[in-house]
Write a protein that binds this DNA or RNA. Sequence first.
DNA 1: TTCTAAAAAGTAGTAATTACGATTTAAGAA
DNA 2: TTCTTAAATCGTAATTACTACTTTTTAGAA
Lengths: 147, 147
Amino acid sequence: MAATISQATKVLKDNNFKITKQRRAMLDFLIATGTQRYVDVTSIDNFMRETFPKMSHNTIYRNISEFAELGIVERQVNGKHASVKFQCDFNHEHHHHFICNNCGKVIELKDCPIGPEVTSQLKGCMVTGHMVQIYGLCPECAKQLNQ
Amino acid sequence: MAATISQATKVLKDNNFKITKQRRAMLDFLIATGTQRYVDVTSIDNFMRETFPKMSHNTIYRNISEFAELGIVERQVNGKHASVKFQCDFNHEHHHHFICNNCGKVIELKDCPIGPEVTSQLKGCMVTGHMVQIYGLCPECAKQLNQ
DNA sequence: TTCTAAAAAGTAGTAATTACGATTTAAGAA
DNA sequence: TTCTTAAATCGTAATTACTACTTTTTAGAA
């Protein structure tokens, strides 16, 4: 826990961003709630404005965007709700997620299923990236909802 | 072309939806522009209101939703823009897409890369679905941008 | 041609997000 | 520690995408 917040503030400092109390509170919130699941942006907005009633939306959304640019959080759009998740690793290792439809928990996939056997179908195309997500129920929710 | 519009209107009729001139115009637009690429919802809204200046947003968005429910169009959220694409096939066969980052062209993948060898990584999870998208440059754009 | 349920128009409202000038503050230098 | 200044935040308002609701129109059946 201490490691992750110092890791995140280091990224900010290294890129000449200032460590404000608002940013620190946002990181605390994201680490507490968003290391293992996606948190939607509006609930970050709500939380921050409870903590700092005078905080403007602008600041919150700007910080989220900056965190995303720096790789501190990962963005996602699910249906029509934008959400972010604190980065599990700051190395930006290529990986994909399983996402629980019930509780939002995220599990990383070990292997990436997109290899040459897939991209070779695309004759003449220049493949630059891909996205994979698997949905379902995590073990806890599966157990709970099936009994 | 004629086949696709009659196919779409048949779906509407079979489900007791009326063929209004607004819906027909929307289908025309979608077939003209959206059979091979995703078109964002706001540009459908803009187009429709140029064609029918009195048309209300409500009607446009409702029709898009109904078309999506009926499988006439396929929805997607890309970054922060909602978009739809006229269905290539009305059989709802499971498939994924390659999407060109330059022109937006869509190419269907023949094979789905998500099989048991992937989902078996997720011990205890109940897998209910997945999404796969591959990004890059289509053959035309790749050629054009590399010379 | 008439009838009626469904669709569209018209008007307004809401939620999420962004814009921008004024003010405050973090953090390095003196 | 105080000063300085660029960066960040505040405060207010605007914008964008989308939805609600009531009235009017219309497609399609009888």
